[in-house]
Design a protein around this nucleic acid. Structure first.
Lengths: 239, 239
DNA sequence: GGTTTTTCTGGGGGAAACCCTAGAGGACGC
DNA sequence: GCGTCCTCTAGGGTTTCCCCCAGAAAAACC
């Protein structure tokens, strides 16, 4: 039995390693790496039973690393470590986790007991989801509040500060289509329009960005990734 | 000689305490508290030589706690611990630190050596600023790029998603005044307007929010505080 | 196959956001 | 005292965003 820890923060690695050696039944060998790509490579070689993946890592995020690892070794137990209950990640998570796989999601402010509990659960084939994030998961599965990928794309674009027409060009849509996406986005985020409410309190566009930041639907690192994608296609050949 | 540590994360407290006991010359008593208010209270009783303050703490932020502590005990050495190089905080910091005071600013991803170095420096009356934020400090002191408080207020409001007229009402200004603030904000953030550039790429309002998040001019917790302030004054007596 | 949901399309209208210019008052340093 | 900078104010114009309506195409569901 082997355990792999992937985290770019040395402090967190030490803490986790220490915790596991003290609390796991037998003396298990624990490997450490400090980015997502190394995690994938090392997992391929070691075929560990359990992998801890920090979400925020250089080169390859924890989610993407998990995707690749689970693709090659579906039986691996994966535990995602996250600082926040970001909805973006939860969103992507369900897509890559096999239905019968064992995995865990723990926030970094979890108590030591919780982490050990999660490790035990995943090792014995169960799932362990941090209590604080159950609500978030619920939301991602509710038809009325969860965003479709069309709405999500639009959200990213306005968060980056693009205009409607600019978005339309980048996503190969008409301006009307963009506005239509935004309209349903606003309604799902429950932002009052011009008609509702006594007088217009909010600029829906900015309000949507604000609320999405707060709910963890978007975050800085996710946005920067998209920024790269959206601008590279255009910087090449433009009149 | 006494040292006080204020941090809401138990893990970080342990790490820091451990680090200090091992590396400070003599056996110094180290007190721990877990929020800003406690830090102020305890500092008043203990009169410590050195105080570590995490920025993000419940009840009272590290900055505000530092302000109160330095007011009562100007000779105290203060070291701010921060996760990010947020410009918001740096902005406020210079206002409260006495010109001849000793203080430090270290990011949480600092190496153990750096933290010890900072502690030693501050204890001997020097300042220690994390290398990574020197650039940020520069920016806050450059006339051309640093924001005035009027521009900053406007920034907060659009980041919260308010409309021009709504901002005007809350800040007791005309709508034109708000737009004037925004105009100079956009130019300081170097966001191209409708005239510049081949075609209008950006919605300036949202773009300003995006860039400000990225530069750490604003952040979630800061915004939520303002949200509270801005809405309480209006929820009372509105037609 | 058919039914639902999602998404894109169109026209037309109103309000908010942004542009330009310009002047007046206040705060600051010197 | 002077100049400088910041800020608010104003009028008048353009563009973008958001609203209503509705219908058609595409995808997903049973």
């Amino acid at each position: 039995m082997t355990v792999l820890i992937a985290d770019d923060e040395e402090r967190d690695r030490l803490w986790l390693k220490d915790l596991l050696t003290k609390n796991l039944p037998e003396h298990v060998p624990i490997q450490e790496v400090c980015d997502g790509q190394q995690a994938v490579d090392t997992a391929g070689r070691l075929k560990p039973d359990l992998v801890f993946l920090d979400i925020k890592m250089p080169h390859l995020s924890g989610i993407k690393a998990a995707e690749q690892i689970l693709q090659k070794l579906p039986g691996t137990g994966v535990i995602i470590l996250s600082n926040f209950s970001d909805e973006v990640y939860v969103r992507n998570l369900w897509k890559i986790v096999p239905a019968d796989g064992a995995f865990g999601y723990v926030l970094k402010n979890a108590s030591n007991e919780q982490v050990v509990e999660a490790a035990r659960a995943v090792l014995s084939g169960d799932c362990w989801i941090h209590p604080g994030i159950a609500r978030v998961i619920q939301r991602t599965q509710n038809r009325a509040t969860s965003l479709t990928s069309a709405e999500y794309e639009a959200l990213i674009c306005i968060a980056l500060g693009l205009t409607d027409s600019s978005i339309a060009r980048r996503l190969y849509l008409t301006e009307k289509a963009v506005q239509s996406r935004l309209k349903s986005l606003y309604s799902k985020l429950a932002i009052p329009g011009r008609g509702e409410g006594q007088d217009t309190e909010f600029n829906q566009r900015c309000r949507a960005v604000f609320l999405s930041y707060r709910r963890g639907l978007i975050n800085q690192s996710e946005l920067e990734e998209w920024e790269g994608k959206l601008f590279e296609t255009k910087t090449g050949g433009e009149k």
